[in-house]
Structure formats: C-alpha cells, structure tokens
Design a protein around this nucleic acid. Structure first.
Length: 623
DNA sequence: TGCTAACGCGCC
DNA sequence: AAAGGGCGCGTTAGCA
C-alpha cells in the first residue's frame, strides 16, 4: 500500500482559498507545496521538488489517495498527465463509502480523513496525536515543518485505512470500485479544463429577460419602484431595475394572492401550514386567474436570471476567466452518482450548476467546447427503464427491449387499446391521435417515465399538468396507471421483492455490488426506506453503468476529453476532425460492454447508448 | 451581521 | 389516508 498526499498553497500575495483551486496553477497563483508518500508500515517521504520524477517512480503502481480527484487534478495542472495515467489510482475515501454507504447519518460530517481514522484506526496508539494535529488551525503554506509532518502522516494514515477498508469489500465490490477509481484522472482533468462559457450570449440574453420581468411587475403592480420617478427610471433603463421582492418571497406572494387578491388557497406547506405559492399551486390558480400566468412566467425568468446568468457572471468575476470550474465529486450521492458544486465553503463562485442546467437551447448554447473541439454526448438509452426491465424480469418489458421495440410506443398502444404494430403504423402514417403534441405517444412516454416508482395518482396528475402540460382528470390518470401495471405486472412484483430483500439483508444493492444499508424501518420512515430499497438498485446500477462507460471510453478513446457527467449522459469534447464513424464505433463499443465479465451478471436486456454530436451543447444531433 | 430554516425549482 | 427517488442553488424570513 502506497499512499500519496499533496499539500497545496496560494502563491505569496494570493488569497488563501486558492490552495483548494487547482486550475489556479495555470495563472500562477497557486501551487503544490509538497508531495508526501506513505506506507501503512509507517515509512514515508516528503518532497518539495522533482514531482515528475516522483510520479515516474510510481509507474504501474497502485497509489492510494484521500479524495483523489483533488490530488490528481493538481498533478494534471502541473502538466503531468502522461505520468498520472500510468499510475493506478485508488481513493480510500471512496472505498470507505463502498463499505459504509448507509441511511444512518451518525457519521457526519462525512468522510474526512480524521473521521476515517476514528472509524478504522480506533486502537492505534497514535490516533489521539493524529487527530490533535489535524484539528490545529495552520494556514496552508505558513509553517513548513508542520505541513511536512502532516502530509507524511496523512499519507500513512490513508494507506492504513485503505488496507483495512479493502478487507471489508467483496470481490465484486472491489472490482466495481476499481472501475470507478479508474475514472479519477478523467474527472480530475475535467475539473481543471472546466467549461468555457459564451459570455457574449449571457450579455445579450440578460436584458431580454430583465425587461420582461420588469414589464410583468408593472402590469401586476408589484414593482420595487416606490415613486413615479423611480418607475420612470426603471422603464427607461432596465439596468437600474431590481427584481420585485413581492414575487420573490413566498411569504409576500401568499399575502398578495390569498389576502389582497382573495384567491382561495388549495394546498399548504407540510411544516408550517402556510398556503403554497409553488408552481403546482400557481398552475391550478392560473386556470381561473390570468394574472397568475404572469407570475409563473416571472418566476421562470427569475430562476433563469439568477441561477443561469447572474451566477455565471459572478464566476467570471471571481475566476477572472470565461472558463468556469464546478467541482465534481464521484460517488457523491448515495446511489453512486456524481454531484457538482459551484461555490466554495466560503461562498466564492467557482462554477455553474451544471446538473441543473436548463434543457432549453437558449441556455444550453451558453456552454461551449474549447477551441478546435466539438461537443459529443453518449447517453444511456432509456437507462432506468432497461434496468427496471432486467431487475423486474417483467416479460413484456424484457420483450420490448430484447426486440428493439419502442417502449413509449408500447405503452401508448396499451392505453389506446391498440396492437403495437397498429400503433407503429399509425405513427408512421401521421395519425394525429398518436403523434400530436400531447397525443398517445407522448402520454406513453409520460407514463413510462413516471411509473417505475411508487407515484400516487394525485401526484401523477399534478406532474402531467405541471411538467408535461397535460390537463387530465383523476380517472384518466388512474386508468393510465391501471393499464401500465396490467401491461407490466413485474414492476409491482419487483417493488415487493426489493423491499423484502432490503429488509432481509439490511441493504439494497446494485448489479455492480454497490450497497446502501437501510436501517430505519420505523413506522414514520417505513415508506421512505421502502422507496429507497426500490429505487437504489435502479438508479445505482445506472451509476455503475455510467462509470463503466466512462472507463471504457477513457481506455479506448484517450483523445476524447471527458467534459462532464449528466447522470445517464457522458459529455465529451472531441477534436473537430474526428469522424462520425469513429463516434459511432465508440457508441457501438459501449453497446457491447461485457456486464457478465464486469458485474458477473447476464443481462436480460441490452443496455444501449445513443451518441450525438454538434458544435455545442444546444446543437447536438444524434448519429 | 451572520447564521439556519423554509420554500421553491432546475436537472436526471 | 396517502406517500416516486436522487441532488445543488437562490431567495427571504427570522433569530441571536
């Protein structure tokens, strides 16, 4: 066991927090202070120079880190990509998650090296001293002797923890964890590369949005302008305008709707009993009051303004660059998905909310590939439905995917009471009942996407209305659900089996062997715990699959630059001269991934991928 | 002023 | 009786 730990620091004269921002290396404002190597035997060394030589000496070796994306990112920022790629990276922190991923929250604050030491090195004589040292508030770069000692000890402890953690993993878990770990360099590089934003578009979209917001406010009489003079100023110059506080505040908006306008509230907050002003409440109110449509529109614009325009502008200012750096974290959600964060602990804006980026082209076009590259997305086709088909073994679902039929069409046919063939014929010949905006195909899609888990009729009806714009009555939705579960009876059987399995074993499990321990079966939590038992093997297997896809692409297409993850979609920057044939070949490789070999599972249905390419995110076209 | 809770909402 | 799940981010309200 060989562990590596990097201490980083701002270059003299730059802010302390730059020690956590590896992309600062490029501008010369942050650097590596030292690199330590430790073994679980207690041997260690630390160096402040010849990093490349050090890395070359590690070629072919297993090297353990604690939150490896961080350390590896610094090495990549220093230009050691080739050396980094020749090392087999492990992450003891992530391995610990593989062991202890649980519903229990007693471990907070989670996954620090100190907590790891407390958990895995309880009986070690040095534990107290180690924790004491970690608790000391030394400033990075401030005290060389302290940091050298600390780096060495961190490395030794990391190695020690790793040794113990690995003994608690099954062979299958270790295999899947290694697949995940192999993506560390790609993920680290994506953090360093960041996402280039088209700020000229930000500048051109911003006034359009603010003007519409301002105009809505005046029509509704909720502008912040308190005098005629101020109102005139807002009208003349939108840059002086500030967003209405009444519309932003749930409290003030409910006063407006339910007191001043005397509308009748239909839903209320769970916790405080306050009348709701959320999208659902407003959507139903909007049926009777046109003004409420304007409020809905205003709120949509407000989110776009603050989250997708102003925050990127804050990032640009803080970074001094048009490239933003959201921080990726592997195995971050308990199902194994990635998360991204856009702000530091001290609230500095370093990135943008990639995982929430609007589907709307107007916003997707703000994110652009590096010069000379195009945007390529590999997305796992109908991922959750296919995994559900496998997990449930439902004969009809399995049949659909085995025979390359269209799942949404199959469900559409079921609710129409038609045969699949007739439905497909209608689809091809332009039957409007099938193909229209909210027609049977669209309904089939909606039902498929919302029925894998236990959604109630009421909730599903609201979803149809609020998310899909379909105004349907309770009985219609009930009928959809009944038809769906009659068509695919294996799904409810899977629910029962998944709950029973989780109860019996104490954990839910993915096909890759990732576990989530479910401990709270009390009356209050039972529903939620059961839902996790159902959902975890589906969503978590999706994460396993995504990790495997990323690893395979990294292995076989090393020139594709991994850009970011969107759960069932892997996004890459690829050189402009790479042909469509090459992309299709890569897609085919993903389709052929050997789950028997990787997971020890014979898949009942193929897990397929789609590939799309374009000059930027908003212009992807499927190949 | 600084913090958390509550609410709301974007994505998968 | 009824109940999708998983996240991160931005705002206001309310408290110390």
């Amino acid at each position: 066991m060989l562990a590596l730990d990097i201490e980083t620091e701002p270059v003299k004269g730059f802010p302390q927090e730059y020690a956590l921002q590896p992309w600062r290396v490029q501008e010369g404002s942050a650097r590596i202070g030292s690199i330590a190597i430790g073994k679980e035997t207690g041997e260690s060394l630390v160096t402040t120079k010849s990093y490349r030589t050090l890395l070359m000496g590690l070629e072919g070796k297993n090297v353990i880190t604690w939150n490896g994306v961080f350390d590896v990112a610094w090495l990549i920022a220093y230009g050691y990509w080739d050396e980094v790629k020749k090392i087999k990276w492990f992450d003891a922190m992530v391995l610990w998650k593989w062991v202890d991923n649980s519903q229990r929250k007693e471990r907070m604050p989670a996954w620090s090296l100190s907590d790891g030491a407390k958990k895995w090195c309880k009986d070690e004589p040095w534990l107290e001293a180690f924790l004491e040292m970690k608790a000391k508030e030394e400033v990075a770069g401030g005290n060389d002797a302290y940091w050298e000692t600390r780096a060495k000890l961190d490395a030794i402890v990391t190695a020690k923890i790793c040794e113990k953690v690995i003994q608690n993993l099954t062979a299958q878990q270790l295999k899947s964890a290694m697949i995940e770990a192999e993506t560390i360099p790609e993920v680290a590089r994506s953090w360093i590369m960041g996402e280039r934003m088209d700020y000229s578009l930000v500048d051109s979209v911003l006034p359009v949005i603010t003007e519409e917001m301002r105009d809505i406010e005046f029509r509704l009489g909720v502008s912040n302008a308190t005098t005629a003079h101020e109102a005139a100023l807002f009208q003349r110059d939108v840059t002086t305008w500030t967003p209405s506080k009444v519309l932003r505040s749930p409290k003030q908006l409910s006063d407006l709707l339910y007191d001043k306008w005397k509308l009748k509230a239909k839903s209320f907050s769970e916790k405080t009993g306050q009348p709701s002003t959320d999208k659902t409440a407003l959507t139903y109110l909007a049926d009777q009051f046109d003004k409420v449509i304007e409020i809905l529109r205003w709120r949509e614009l407000n989110t776009q303004l603050t989250k997708y325009l102003q925050s990127p502008l804050k990032a640009k200012e803080y970074l001094g660059s048009e490239v933003v750096h959201p921080t990726p974290r592997i195995f971050s959600t308990y199902t194994g998905r990635f998360t991204y964060t856009s702000k530091t602990a001290r609230k500095f804006q370093t990135g943008v909310a990639l995982h929430q980026w609007p589907r709307n082209k107007e916003f997707r076009r703000l994110i652009v590939p590096p010069e000379g590259y195009k945007h390529v997305e590999f997305d796992a086709a109908g991922q959750e439905s296919r995994i559900m088909a496998h997990q449930s073994g439902d004969a009809a679902m399995v049949n659909v995917f085995q025979n390359n039929m269209k799942f949404h069409a199959m469900t559409g046919a079921k609710i129409a009471g038609m045969s699949y063939d007739a439905f497909m014929k209608g689809r091809e010949t332009g039957n409007s009942a099938i193909n229209s905006e909210h027609g049977l195909y669209y309904q089939g899609k909606f039902i498929n996407l919302s029925s894998n888990f236990r959604v109630g009729t009421r909730k599903m009806r609201i979803q149809a209305r609020v998310q899909y714009g379909m105004n349907v009555d309770f009985l219609t939705v009930k009928n959809w659900q009944d038809t769906f579960f009659r068509a695919y009876p294996g799904i409810k059987t899977y629910w029962k089996a998944a709950i029973l399995k989780a109860k019996t074993k104490g954990y839910a499990e993915t096909l890759g062997g990732r576990r989530f321990y479910l401990t709270d079966w009390s009356k209050d939590s039972q529903w939620a715990t059961e839902s996790s038992a159902i959902m975890f093997p589906i969503q978590g297997t999706g994460a396993d699959m995504k990790n495997l896809g990323l690893r395979e692409l990294a292995r076989h297409y090393p020139d594709f630059l991994f850009a970011y993850d969107l759960h069932d979609g892997l996004h890459f920057w690829v050189k402009e001269d790479v042909s469509d044939d090459t992309l299709i070949e890569a897609r085919d490789m993903l389709d052929q991934m050997d789950y028997e070999k990787e997971w020890g599972v014979q898949m009942r249905v193929p897990l397929t991928w789609d590939v799309s390419v374009g000059p930027r995110w908003s212009e992807l076209e499927e190949l």
